[in-house]
Design a protein around this nucleic acid. Structure first.
Length: 228
DNA sequence: GCGACAG
DNA sequence: ATCTTGTCGC
């Protein structure tokens, strides 16, 4: 079987990739990056985990802000259509993520997504993709870089360093815990880099991951066990 | 042409 | 993402 670059993923149909790339280019025109005008009271976090090869479980948690108390947690299981392809993660995971979102009784003012926002080759990381679909403020918190270069931030919590791509700052590399690998914070949609960075920091307690993402991660694992 | 590559 | 034990350091 043919493989995609150095990964063990089947080579996707070039025609399909061309279509998805075009779709991202169209969506790119609708991205709005600005200081959010909301009064942040409820913030959501989401994450997905896989159950087998082509079945995904997505979880959403809803927290109060700035107290960060859990008020709701939901999940949804469904099939995935595409293999993982760097740059096209949203087409694989967003559909199921959105179905889980619909199950929330209350809707958040902002959604923190695990993955990148505009720190993507075409500015369409999963956080931006989801924000455009819901017309809702979103921001991304990723554990690894996708594109861009940066200098390692100082090892103390709170240190930041810009992630630069094509002469533009597309994210902030944020140290959320002393001597622990930093996270990459970027605006998704209806959001700006500065706000995203300060909110990520405000949501960080004693762990590396900001609470919305950390709890979504946690419950995704818990729900996964219950489903099995 | 050779690497790099979210989850 | 996922497969997986012990181990080093704060």
């Amino acid at each position: 079987m043919a493989y995609y670059r150095r990964f063990d993923y089947p080579t996707p149909d070039p025609a399909i990739l061309a279509r998805l790339t075009e779709q991202q280019r169209e969506m790119q025109e609708r991205i709005i990056l600005q200081k959010p005008d909301f009064d942040l009271k409820l913030i959501a976090g989401c994450d997905s985990s896989f159950i087998g090869e082509d079945t995904i479980l997505s979880a959403f948690v809803l927290l109060t802000y700035p107290a960060l108390e859990l008020v709701e947690k939901v999940w949804h299981v469904g099939p995935v259509e595409l293999p993982y392809i760097p740059g096209f993660l949203a087409f694989r995971e967003a559909p199921n993520l959105l179905k889980a979102y619909e199950k929330l009784q209350q809707k958040p003012d902002l959604i923190m997504v695990d993955g990148h926002g505009i720190s993507h080759p075409r500015r369409l990381g999963i956080a931006t993709h989801v924000g455009l679909h819901l017309n809702k403020p979103t921001m991304g918190v990723a554990k690894k870089v996708l594109v861009g270069k940066y200098k390692e931030p100082e090892v103390t919590k709170g240190s930041v360093s810009p992630l630069v791509y094509k002469d533009e700052i597309i994210a902030n590399v944020l140290r959320t815990k002393d001597n622990v690998k930093p996270v990459f914070v970027s605006p998704g949609h209806l959001m700006d880099l500065e706000s995203a960075t300060s909110i990520a920091m405000a949501c960080t307690t004693k762990y590396k991951l900001p609470e919305p993402t950390r709890l979504a991660d946690h419950y995704a694992a818990v729900f996964k066990q219950e489903v099995k």
